[in-house]
Design a protein around this nucleic acid. Structure first.
Length: 613
DNA sequence: GCAAGGTC
């Protein structure tokens, strides 16, 4: 029970793991935390005592799992044949909590009723701010007296978390508005084009890839171009040391054979410097006095100062070691048992292995390293180059564990407009040739560079491509567009889509930015954007013959609508095999390719394929 | 039956 004078504070994070980490950090200095099950199996509730600005608080910390709400059309417009797809540009929409999120909603309602404050611990980006307001809406509906606060933090490290809760701010409605507008535009465009092209093409052609009774949907949707932001990344220290890890790491770091490693380790053990070296255990028992082991190393010339920092509460460097999950019930993980600065008779390998065991132990009880992923775009004589890398914010355990570095190049922080000299410039010559098919990893990095989707949604977009039969993946995970994929790109390409589509999208991104800083209102942007989007839709629909023509080159007519010739399609014979279904294609990236059914086209880049959507 | 984003 909370004591007299305490206020109850409901804290909500974007995901369960963040709720747990924040609760652990905030409760460490007090009496620890308890946890209990909420209505949702995955979103536990943590409770602990904490003081905010001198005010004693009973803290309840729980989480959502990303967005709590989805946007949908009113019932009257939900059925595909209930309206003209063009009506979807002004049909009423509403936000609602989908079925699978109702248990989280109920947890929030139950807890919010009994609280005075609500603190939002969502990610500090536009989507996070939008989710914050979804949580606010649910909580305020049951308790209108809630005092609403926003915790702003950029890393799950003690200093940041304590700092943010002592400096709470108000949530930013404008950021959330920008996302609202984005959602509404995406829904209206996506639904209208999807319904239109599905209903137009599904019945007119024999779609040979369709299995019996499968309900084909030819979906259409843009991807968000995301904010350029630095994403926090954590690199965790290793688990406590088992024999197997000792051997693997000694081999990797010192090129020592496992047999020799065990001989040296055995000698260090016999002389009392390390614990028994034959163990499968990679987690410490709760009874182990880890701090005493650290304390013994305070005076070591090389790592003594790190050991001291570990036990200094102000450094916030300590972390209870994680557990690798193996336990032989006989021996603890390998750890140092006596301080040594080197003994007479030790070989280089004795020194190396002892140092390794100590540093590994100190790393296990340290905080993970914190970094920020960064992408830098460089302009050289009008050509764009990209560099991506990592800026390390806090090295933490890497300070002592010198055997490991953070993968990938570390690039310094660049300021905008900063100039620098390239060290080498090369210009490779080459001839035009069909590029190789893209692998899944190529595709992902391609999407990443082009800003298509986000880290979290890229695999979703790829899956959707496959589900919709727009592309196939072979045994080597190489992607090829299908006939349907090629036809759709070509159809829209022939409408002149590539001319106005990217322009509109870019304009929309600018509008989102303006909403988020308050220089334009959400409704103003929605009105103008949707009006133009609707004009595009009407234009595309009016040019639907282009889509039909393109489809005709790949698929047989079902006979349920008129044929392509009568609609004005141009079909030229193939210059290679003389087949009449020859096809001259201008690809979205501007190159020309020739092909027919017997000489299928080699895919250019699927990225371009994406862009055309 | 449709979009995007978040996350499990």
């Amino acid at each position: 029970m909370s004591g007299r004078g305490r206020i109850r504070v409901l804290n909500v994070a974007e995901k369960p793991s963040v709720a747990k980490s924040v609760a652990e950090i905030l409760s460490r200095s007090g009496g620890g935390m308890r946890s209990r099950q909420g209505r949702s199996r995955f979103n536990r509730i943590f409770e602990f005592e904490y003081c905010i600005g001198g005010q004693p608080c009973h803290m309840l910390m729980t989480s959502v799992t990303g967005h709590l709400m989805e946007l949908e059309f009113d019932d009257r417009f939900r059925k595909w044949h209930s309206c003209d797809p063009a009506d979807l540009y002004h049909a009423p929409v509403r936000k609602h909590v989908p079925q699978d999120k109702l248990d989280i909603k109920r947890t929030l309602e139950e807890e919010a009723r009994m609280c005075q404050w609500l603190v939002l611990w969502l990610d500090c980006d536009r989507e996070g701010e939008n989710i914050a307001f979804e949580v606010v809406e649910v909580c305020m509906a049951v308790n209108g007296h809630l005092n609403i606060w926003r915790a702003r933090f950029s890393a799950l490290i003690d200093r940041e978390i304590h700092g943010s809760v002592q400096n709470l701010v108000r949530p930013n409605r404008l950021f959330a508005d920008a996302v609202d507008a984005r959602q509404e535009i995406d829904l209206r465009i996506g639904a209208s084009f999807t319904r239109f092209q599905t209903m137009l093409l599904r019945d007119a052609f024999v779609l040979d890839f369709v299995r019996d009774n499968e309900n084909v949907v030819l979906s259409y949707g843009p991807c968000q171009v995301v904010d350029v932001k630095n994403k926090e990344k954590l690199k965790y220290p290793p688990y406590p040391l088992s024999t197997l890890e000792l051997q693997k790491r000694a081999s990797r770091y010192f090129r020592m054979s496992s047999e020799h490693t065990m001989k040296v380790a055995e000698e260090l053990y016999q002389a009392g410097f390390i614990s028994y070296p034959r163990t499968e255990t990679d987690g410490f028992s709760v009874n182990t006095d880890l701090q005493a082991i650290v304390r013994e190393h305070f005076t070591h010339p090389a790592w003594g100062s790190y050991a001291q920092r570990l036990l200094d509460p102000d450094e916030r460097l300590w972390r209870n070691p994680s557990n690798g999950g193996h336990d032989d019930k006989a021996h603890p993980p390998i750890h140092p048992t006596k301080l040594s600065t080197g003994e007479a008779g030790w070989t280089e390998d004795h020194k190396r292995l002892y140092e390794f065991v100590v540093r590994h132990f100190l790393a296990c009880v340290s905080q993970p390293a914190v970094g920020a992923g960064t992408t830098v775009e460089i302009d050289i004589a009008g050509e764009k180059f990209f560099a991506s890398g990592l800026v390390i914010i806090a090295k933490n355990y890497l300070d002592v564990y010198r055997f490991e570095s953070w993968d990938g190049a570390v690039i310094p922080t660049y300021a905008l407009e900063q100039q620098f000299l390239p060290t080498t410039l090369t210009l490779d010559s080459g001839v035009t040739r069909p590029p190789p098919l893209l692998s899944e990893s190529d595709l992902l990095s391609c999407m990443d560079k082009a800003g298509i989707g986000t880290d979290a949604t890229m695999h979703d977009h790829i899956k959707k491509l496959l589900d919709r039969h727009y592309a196939t993946k072979d045994a080597n995970t190489r992607f090829s567009p299908t006939k349907l994929g090629e036809a759709l790109v070509m159809g829209y390409d022939d409408m002149g889509y590539e001319l106005w589509k990217p322009y509109l999208r870019a304009m929309m991104e600018c509008d989102m930015k303006e909403v988020s800083v308050g220089s334009k209102s959400k409704s103003e942007v929605l009105d103008s954007c949707l009006q133009q989007m609707k004009a595009c839709f009407m234009d595309a629909r009016q040019k639907k013959v282009k889509l039909l023509e393109a489809m005709e080159l790949f698929f047989e007519r079902s006979g349920r609508t008129g044929d392509a010739q009568s609609l004005g399609a141009t079909v030229r014979p193939c210059s290679i095999c003389n087949e009449s279904n020859m096809l001259l294609k201008r690809r979205p990236n501007g190159e020309f390719m020739v092909g027919c059914q017997r000489f299928p086209l080699v895919s250019s880049t699927l990225c371009v394929f994406f862009n055309a959507y």
